[in-house]
């Protein structure tokens, strides 16, 4: 089975703004969805009761939404500055684990699911000359020439024919005879 068929494809990229000026937290928004009565949301409810306010104070750039909904399992949805949306089930997860996952999500720069690279190369220093085009390294005279062109269409480096060889010998002989006279 070709696993790469199921991978999302994309290009290698990084949030280039971080590291030049101030640090910008790439995590923008977190939605915590849970049920008020169901047992699978017990850990999430504990997290909201005990740790959520501290987490919000530590990460003041992150917008937090808490969304109760009946009889559905708990879920974290994290949205990033680059448009990525990470969905994560927290079914039967204890509150400590949810805190760990949340702090991990807040440190990441986007969805870190593996992607299939569309191109296997990347450059930080693109060419100064610019990309190739049909006329790079071409003689400009060839572009404005009249086509069909006699010389440009002829065989490249054709071997010398017997006729040419003969004419060359005759010319040489004529010259040497003229010198003698």
């Amino acid at each position: 089975m070709n696993h790469s068929q199921f991978l999302v494809s994309g290009f290698l990229r990084a949030p280039i703004y971080n590291g030049i000026g101030r640090q910008i937290n790439q995590l923008q928004r977190v939605t915590l969805k849970f049920c008020k009565s169901h047992g699978s949301s017990q850990g999430m409810r504990n997290f909201i009761e005990n740790n959520l306010v501290d987490f919000a104070k530590q990460n003041d750039s992150v917008v937090l939404y808490v969304k109760p909904r009946r009889h559905r399992s708990p879920v974290i949805v994290a949205e990033y500055l680059n448009g990525d949306r990470k969905w994560m089930s927290c079914h039967n997860r204890p509150s400590e684990e949810i805190l760990k996952w949340l702090s991990l999500l807040s440190l990441q720069a986007g969805d870190t699911e593996p992607i299939r690279y569309r191109k296997h190369w990347h450059t930080d220093v693109p060419s100064i000359q610019g990309p190739w085009n049909p006329f790079t390294h071409k003689n400009p005279g060839h572009i404005i020439a009249e086509y069909p062109h006699e010389g440009l269409g002829r065989v490249f480096k054709a071997p010398q024919s017997a006729t040419e060889k003969l004419l060359k010998i005759a010319k040489k002989r004529n010259e040497s005879e003229n010198k003698k006279e």
């Binding site: 060839h142 086509y147 069909p148 440009l152 065989v155 054709a158």
Partner: peptide, 21 residues
């Protein structure tokens, strides 16, 4: 033959070299 419509021949910017003399 070598009668090519003008709207085609004016696009040409390159000639493929012949393979035989």
């Amino acid at each position: 033959d070598d009668n090519v419509p003008k709207e085609l021949i004016e696009n040409v910017t390159s000639q493929i070299r012949q393979l035989r003399v």
